[in-house]
Each structure stands twice: as structure tokens, then as C-alpha cells.
């Protein structure tokens, strides 16, 4: 039991909440929210007049509605904004249909494109979203409207969950995994199988053979990056490319995707300072759509 608990710590990523500095709101502002309940993480954003005000990133529990409420309450914490001040809430992500307090549900595909457009601007035309249980390659126009997309099968191969399993197996904290996978003298061949169950077996074999953790990690990360790059190739890469979701912070993945596609991704904003965390792209897009749809309901009423 103790052993298991120590293991757990490796894949456990940091939950946190952020209120953007130097911003304020009044009762006359239009405040909206977006809640993205993914299979692994639940994210919430609060927007004031369509501008990001605060957000939270939490782990998804067994109940989608509870996870959504937890994320939203946390995003509202220390802002003075009450849930009753929110004019419109959009739910997205795998658990979107179960968010009882949302006014509307949109798919994470539409929301990620819109969110990426907000974070990086209109030059974004291709988005790779690496979620907990699936990966999506999305193409969009200058306004962040989806023009085409592809999703992998329901399978942990190449997903955030797959990375968690590897962090656990190799006993490396998930935040360090990217750097460590690059800490090698020569890039090893990728593992032959991206299926998490089989890749785990293969990795254990490689460790026994005397490979370093870094080398095994590099081989697995490379296999994942190739899988992601192929999905992007299939949807058709149109620069600029960005990566959203938890794996956008995995430098090992990002650099290998860049190598495979021979293109640079737009750099992720410094989210530890004032930048927006690419993990919230979906929830952010939902919040933006919430504002737009709320505005529309007002004009039709007038």
C-alpha cells in the first residue's frame, strides 16, 4: 500500500488556480465561464467581457458534474465573483453532457480551436490537442473556426494517460519527463508498439537489457510523437502549429513532433508568469463561445 502511494506521486501533476493580475470587474460586466471536463483533467475559466480573468486546473474525479463544479468553484475563488454573476456557462470535454449547471454544451474540438486562436492569435491554423484519453488534430481558419479535424481511436497510445503510466513505471515525476527524455547522447529507435500495455512490457525489457531510464523514455516519447505527427499529416499541416493539452508542456514531445514535421510550434506562453496555460485552451474556448452566444441572445431579445 505504501509502495503504491509513492508510485502515485510520480504521475500526479500539479493542480492549481490562477487569477490574472491587474484586472478588475464590476457588476455591469458580462462575465461568462467555460468548463472542460476531460477524462483526466477538469479545467474551468472565468472571462470578463470576453477576456480571461481566472482559471483552474484540477483532476477529474469519478463524477463529471462534481468535477465540473469543483473546477468552476476553484476558478471563482478569491475573485469575488459568485456563480450567480455568470451570465452564461458552456460545458465541453468528454463529460460535457453531464454538467448540470451549464447553459449549453459544445465539443472540445470547437473549443480548443477557439481557445488556441485566443492564446496565440489568428496565425494559428493547426492545433494538436493531446488529451487524457485521445489526441486530436484540428484545422481552423483565422477566426478559430474549425475547418476539419481527426481523432485517434479510444486508446491510451500517444495520450496524456499513456505518459502518466510511463512516469509511474519509470518513477519519474511527470513534469520532468520531457527534459529527461532529451537527456541522451543519441536518439534511440522508437519503441515498436505504442499500445500502452505492450509498450510497458517492451520498456521493462529494455530496462533489463541495461538501457537507462532516459533512453527508454526517449524511445517511448519518440513513438508517441510519431503517432501524433502522422495524425497531423493526415489532417494536413497548415502553419502555424500549436499544441494544447497537458503534453504541450512536455518538451520531449514538442521537440520530437517539430523534428518529425520539420516545423516549429509556436512557443507556449510562460504560464508560470503571466501567460495562459495551453492546458486550459478548451475551457477558454468554451468561455469565449459563452460570451458570444450570450451577446447573441441579447441582440435577439432587443
Amino acid at each position: 500500500m505504501t509502495q503504491q502511494q509513492t508510485n502515485e506521486a510520480f504521475w500526479r501533476w500539479q493542480e492549481y488556480q490562477r487569477v490574472m493580475p491587474n484586472k478588475s470587474w464590476t457588476k455591469n460586466d458580462i462575465i461568462t465561464a467555460g468548463v472542460d471536463v476531460g477524462s483526466v483533467g477538469s479545467k474551468a475559466t472565468v472571462l470578463v467581457n470576453g477576456e480571461i480573468y481566472s482559471w483552474s486546473i484540477t483532476r477529474t474525479g469519478s463524477n463529471s458534474s462534481d468535477s465540473a463544479a469543483k473546477a468552476l468553484n476553484w476558478a471563482l475563488k478569491d475573485t469575488g465573483i459568485q456563480q450567480s454573476d455568470l451570465k452564461y456557462i458552456i460545458g465541453t470535454g468528454y463529460g460535457r453532457v453531464n454538467i448540470s449547471f451549464a447553459n449549453k454544451a459544445l465539443t472540445e474540438i470547437a473549443c480548443h480551436a477557439k481557445g488556441a486562436n485566443y492564446i496565440w492569435g489568428s496565425q494559428v491554423h493547426t492545433i494538436l490537442d493531446v488529451g487524457g484519453q485521445d489526441i486530436k488534430a484540428i484545422r481552423c481558419d483565422d477566426t478559430g473556426r474549425v475547418t476539419s479535424f481527426l481523432m485517434n481511436d479510444k486508446c491510451a497510445a500517444g495520450t496524456g494517460r499513456g505518459m502518466e503510466v510511463f512516469a509511474d513505471l519509470l518513477k519519474i515525476p511527470i513534469e520532468k519527463i520531457g527534459e529527461m527524455s532529451l537527456n541522451i547522447t543519441e536518439e534511440p529507435p522508437s519503441v515498436s508498439c505504442t499500445c500502452v500495455a505492450f509498450a510497458k512490457t517492451e520498456a521493462m525489457g529494455l530496462l533489463r537489457k541495461g538501457w537507462s531510464k532516459e533512453k527508454v523514455l526517449a524511445a517511448y516519447t519518440k513513438a508517441m510523437a510519431i503517432r501524433m505527427s502522422n495524425l497531423i499529416k493526415r489532417v494536413g499541416l497548415e502553419p502555424a502549429l500549436v499544441i494544447t493539452g497537458g503534453q504541450s508542456k512536455n518538451i520531449g514531445i514538442v521537440s520530437r513532433v517539430e523534428t518529425a514535421l520539420e516545423v516549429k510550434c509556436l512557443p507556449i506562453p510562460n504560464w508560470r508568469e503571466n501567460g495562459i496555460d495551453p492546458m486550459i485552451a478548451g475551457a477558454l474556448g468554451a468561455g469565449i463561445y459563452a460570451k458570444a452566444i450570450y451577446d447573441k441572445t441579447q441582440t435577439t431579445r432587443d
Binding site: 459544445l106 465539443t107 472540445e108 477566426t143 473556426r145 474549425v146 476539419s148 481511436d153 458570444a292
Partner: peptide, 23 residues
């Protein structure tokens, strides 16, 4: 078993066709 996954795909496709969510 894959109904949830298919639902996301079909809905995202319909959102793409739907002019109503244009901003």
C-alpha cells in the same frame, strides 16, 4: 461501447457545418 467517442466526432462535425455558432 464507442458511442461516446462517436458522439464527440459527429457533434464536432455538425458544429463545423452549423453556421449558428459563427461569432
Amino acid at each position: 461501447e464507442d458511442t461516446g467517442q462517436l458522439k464527440t466526432r459527429v457533434e464536432a462535425f455538425l458544429e463545423m457545418l452549423n453556421t449558428q455558432i459563427d461569432l
